[in-house]
Simulated scan of single mutants.
Amino acid sequence: MIKTIALVFFMTFLFSCSGGSDSPAPEENKAPEKVETLTYPTNNLLCIDNTLDFQWGASSDPNGDAITYTLEIATKSDFSDVESHTSTTTTKTVTLEKGKAYHWRVQAKDSKDLSSEYSSVYQFYTEGIGVVNHLPFSPELIAPENDSNTSDASIDLKWDASDVDDDALTYDVYFDTVNPPVSMMGDNQSEKEINVSLTVTTTYYWKVVVNDGNGGEAIGPVWSFETN
């Protein structure tokens, strides 16, 4: 009888210690969804004021966590001079300098510090006092991807650029093995691409200067890639 009681006690103890095996696994925390819509200022907009109500679409979180948004504004397309603002709603009022070109994007973050991918990037211009001609927007990289690798003997450098005044744009392309690049490969060209020959196991640097024909100039960031 004593042995029977001891055995029942042991089985009860064993079951209580291992009872957690039936408990559901903790839910994996996932990052919020990417902000898909930038509402205002719209892309390539010439704003009539320099105090702007930035607006974007809401993100959602798979775990139902609270979301905050980081609004990033920069004058450079690579956001190396970024100015950040936090908001718990999908709008933020910011006062900027007059007569300047800006880029903006939004990132969502949940209460556990997981962040979404960045939204797409929009660019706009704040109207200056008595401004007749506006500078072009900084050029945007199309190809090759920055800091990428290639085995090709030649490659097409591609970019994009725009201007709120709809001026006809031309481009000076600098391509070199030193940073910053000083050798000009394209001079005052209208095409948004240029083919360059490559050497193996070399790091190349390049940038584009955008001219609007009215004295306006935008110098792009330095991009780079390597050959195998």
Rank of each mutant, 00 (worst) to 15 (best):
139 P>N: 04
88 T>N: 13
63 N>Q: 02
117 E>L: 01
107 Q>K: 15
116 S>N: 09
58 A>K: 10
138 S>Q: 15
139 P>S: 02
180 P>F: 03
101 A>L: 06
115 S>A: 14
150 T>H: 01
98 K>A: 14
61 D>S: 06
120 S>L: 12
167 D>Q: 11
95 T>H: 01
90 T>N: 14
65 D>V: 03
184 M>N: 06
113 D>Y: 07
124 F>Q: 12
120 S>D: 15
135 L>P: 00
179 N>D: 15
180 P>S: 07
134 H>K: 05
112 K>Y: 06
116 S>Y: 03
171 Y>E: 04
181 P>S: 03
113 D>N: 13
62 P>R: 06
186 G>R: 03
185 M>E: 12
86 T>D: 06
188 N>E: 13
143 A>K: 13
139 P>M: 07
151 S>E: 13
133 N>S: 08
96 L>T: 10
156 D>E: 13
184 M>Q: 15
142 I>V: 15
182 V>I: 14
173 V>F: 05
94 V>P: 09
130 G>H: 12
139 P>Q: 05
110 D>T: 03
99 G>F: 08
102 Y>K: 11
114 L>K: 14
180 P>Y: 01
96 L>S: 10
155 I>C: 05
103 H>P: 00
100 K>A: 08
71 L>Y: 01
86 T>C: 04
102 Y>V: 10
174 Y>V: 04
178 V>R: 02
106 V>W: 02
177 T>N: 10
138 S>R: 07
